[in-house]
């Protein structure tokens, strides 16, 4: 009998990871610069807290890839990120 892997509770994720996840939930796929741009908007102000350089957001995004929650692909212009498809 197959059992699904335990679902990650959002509270298990750092705020910045939750930020990136929320941004990607609202979009199809985004570049790194697009994610950082959206993170700086008013809509995400409470969740997305990092300096303008965005280092912590990108680190969080890479951690989400390791957890299997999002994917990234390098191509023309750089990386594109999106939610992992089930």
């Amino acid at each position: 009998m197959c059992t699904a892997p335990p679902r990650l509770d959002m509270s298990d994720l750092s705020k910045n990871a939750q930020c990136v996840l929320k941004i990607l939930e609202d979009s199809e796929s985004l570049t790194t610069t697009e994610i950082l741009g959206i993170a700086a908007t008013e809509k995400y102000a409470k969740l997305c807290v990092d300096c303008a350089g965005g280092d912590a957001f990108v680190a969080a995004a890479n951690q989400l890839v390791e957890k299997g929650l999002i994917t990234k692909k390098f191509g023309k212009g750089g990386y594109r990120w999106q939610l992992a498809k089930d």
Binding site: V58, G77, G78, Y79
Partner: peptide, 12 residues
């Protein structure tokens, strides 16, 4: 200039 974010350079 072919990569939109320096973070992508570092990640790659």
């Amino acid at each position: 200039d072919t990569v939109s974010s320096a973070h992508d350079v570092a990640t790659f």
